[in-house]
Amino acid sequence: MKPEKEKPMTRKRDLRLDIIRCIAAFSVISVHFLSHIQYYEASMEGGRMFLMTLMRTAFMVCVPLFLMLTGYLMHQKQLKKGYYKGILKTLGIYILAALAYQVSLSLFSGAPVSLRKYLLQILGFGGYGWYIEMYIGLFLLIPFLNAMWRGLKGQKQKMLLIVTLLALTTLPSLFNIYDWHTPGFWQLPSSASSFQRIVPAWWLLLYPLTYYFIGAYLQEYGLKLRAWQTALALAACIAAFGAFQFYRSTPGPFQVTLATDWGGFPILIESVLLFHLLLQIKTTRIPRFFQLLFTKISELSLGIYLVSIIFDNIFYPRLAAAVSSVPLRLNYYPVIVPLVFICSALFSQLLLWIQKAIAWPFRRIPWKKVTAHLQIKGESAL
């Protein structure tokens, strides 16, 4: 008898990470809901506006979840042959989604098709493409960030790196949002639009690195919080931070400050707590159907995010025309957000099929033999 060949070990898929992607994708569409119903232009008055402020506070974890997940999964990647091929799928989905978005704009507006205009828009990362523009840079840096991470000696030094990044990217959101020149400024909610800088704030845009290394830290060390403690802390943070932001904006429109952005302290705390909470899910208790559903949505999550702008442009103008009151538009959240999510998922699946069809002929090419042949031919020419 011939000895059986050992089967290559396959890495078991972590359903918890799929669930994180699903929640992040749904949160993105929920945040866009608030933007498209003119929440930010309405006065912060009444129970509905307060509820929407809490919703925004909760759903702003979307981008941080994606960034922490990147650090969680990729912090051991090294600069090896073939590393840069890892971004091709992401770029492929982006290009197809961006092209579909430009075509949809032409269809809605009746403008003529212009390949030159489409190309410039794709290269300009319009629509929701800003995330891809950021991610390209992060992806290129990852091997070097990981080399720095591995070079640190133990948990204390890695924690010190994160604390340093927090000081650069998050600390300003705690102190640079107040009008320190005005006595009794805390009694003037509208002073949120006027503030003085008292801590350095030059490195704010480094916040993706902060989340990346937090994700790496959580993968290696985790947090010493039980699930119920984490859930309680998360709920308390959403309530406290949401109420504070509502107060700071009253009675005018929503006040955008450093604290309300993705690098802000409130969003960071909530994102870390939610990420840690989701890692504690007992996936064996989830029915098989929902496991498959989470896995599929996770696979489509990037496409869902990118193409959702197409369906935003379809549904929200109709909602605005039908309902003039911004607070009353909240009634349609349970309808429009799931509708946009489902349509985006189906369209994302279509783009994935197209991408695979385009890539299939290239995968059939024996690149190793072609490369070897070219090398031999080059050497003989010399």
Rank of each mutant, 00 (worst) to 15 (best):
K2Q: 13
E6V: 08
R13C: 08
L15V: 11
L17E: 02
L17S: 01
D18N: 13
I19G: 09
R21Y: 09
I29V: 15
S30L: 04
L34G: 05
E45L: 14
F59P: 12
C62L: 00
L65E: 04
G71W: 07
H75Q: 01
Q76L: 07
K80C: 00
T90K: 00
I93G: 09
L96N: 03
A97C: 13
A98Y: 08
S104P: 08
L105T: 05
G110S: 07
A111C: 02
S114G: 01
R116S: 15
K117F: 15
K117Q: 14
I122K: 04
G126Q: 11
G129L: 04
W130E: 04
I132D: 10
W149A: 05
G151Y: 06
I162M: 01
L168G: 02
L171W: 12
F175D: 04
P183C: 03
G184D: 07
G184N: 03
W186G: 09
L188E: 14
W202D: 12
L206P: 04
T210S: 02
Y212K: 13
Y217P: 04
L218D: 05
G222C: 06
L223Q: 06
W228K: 15
A240G: 10
F246E: 07
R248S: 09
P253R: 13
V256S: 11
L258D: 04
T260C: 06
W262M: 12
W262R: 00
G264I: 01
I267T: 13
E270R: 11
F275C: 07
Q280W: 11
T283Y: 02
T284M: 03
F290W: 15
F294M: 04
I297D: 07
G303H: 01
L306P: 09
V307F: 11
D312G: 09
N313I: 00
F315A: 12
P317V: 00
R318K: 15
L328G: 00
Y332G: 06
V337Y: 02
V337A: 03
F347C: 04
L351S: 03
A359V: 04
W360F: 14
P361W: 08
R363T: 10
K369T: 15
A372H: 00
